[in-house]
């Protein structure tokens, strides 16, 4: 009797362990992507101070060059994502609707789904678009940021998954899309 019980417990304990490990790894998956963003406050302050110390140890010209390199590579990577069909699953890229950051001038369809829609939406140019965010957007029925708007497009028109808001992909793409509005006046919330 005791023996049977013991034998039966082992696989269940193992399964439970596997489940716990799988569950935990789900939560810690993004932990290293954004050290100052997601870790516990104390840990993340340590990361911030480490970064600041490293920057302060550099001389001014080296620091400037480091910053420029990071900014320019972010925009370049963002531009690559803008032209990358792997953000979606229907072959479309951001550039399909917004060639060179502008508009095809056409409309984009949100296909009918379980009794809802379809809706046809005019495709806007992205030149000047970022200057109006955060703003109200109907699909969210709330004010959203530019990064969230990018996610809207990916999910609605590219059949893609949303990018986590603290992922490098999300802010690279946001920086490129924002750079399309360089020189335009900020008018938060306007049409």
């Amino acid at each position: 009797m005791l023996k049977i019980k013991r034998i039966a417990t082992v696989p269940w304990a193992a399964l439970l362990l596997v489940l716990i490990v799988a569950g935990c790894s789900q939560y810690s998956r993004h932990a290293d992507k954004d050290k100052f963003g997601e870790r516990s406050n104390k840990r993340s302050m340590d990361d911030a101070l480490e970064n600041i110390d490293r920057m302060m140890a550099m001389d001014m010209s080296k620091r400037k060059a480091h910053m420029m390199k990071k900014q320019q590579s972010a925009i370049a990577l963002g531009k690559a994502l803008f032209n990358d069909a792997s953000l979606g699953s229907n072959g479309n890229t951001c550039n399909s609707c917004h060639p060179g950051g502008t508009t095809t001038g056409g409309e984009s369809e949100i296909p009918k789904k379980m009794g809802h829609g379809p809706y046809m939406l005019p495709i806007p140019s992205l030149v000047g678009a970022s200057a109006r965010f955060p703003k109200y957007k109907v699909p969210n029925d709330a004010v959203i940021t530019l990064e969230m708007m990018n996610n809207n497009c990916m999910r609605m028109f590219m059949k893609g998954k949303r990018l986590p808001l603290d992922s490098p992909e999300s802010y690279f793409l946001a920086q490129y899309v924002t750079s399309l509005s360089n020189g335009d006046d900020v008018t938060v919330g306007s049409k």
């Binding site: 420029m68 900014q71 320019q72 925009i75 370049a76 531009k79 970022s130 200057a131 965010f133 955060p134 703003k135 709330a142 004010v143 959203i144 940021t145 969230m148 808001l165 920086q175 924002t178 750079s179 509005s181 360089n182 020189g183 335009d184 006046d185 900020v186 008018t187 938060v188 919330g189």
Partner: peptide
Amino acid sequence: NSDEAIALGMYISSLSNGESVNVQAA
């Protein structure tokens, strides 16, 4: 993606109304 982060972001962005967007161009 919290209401608070978005609302605070919106208010602070609104302080720049009328200023030109100027992110570091490639």
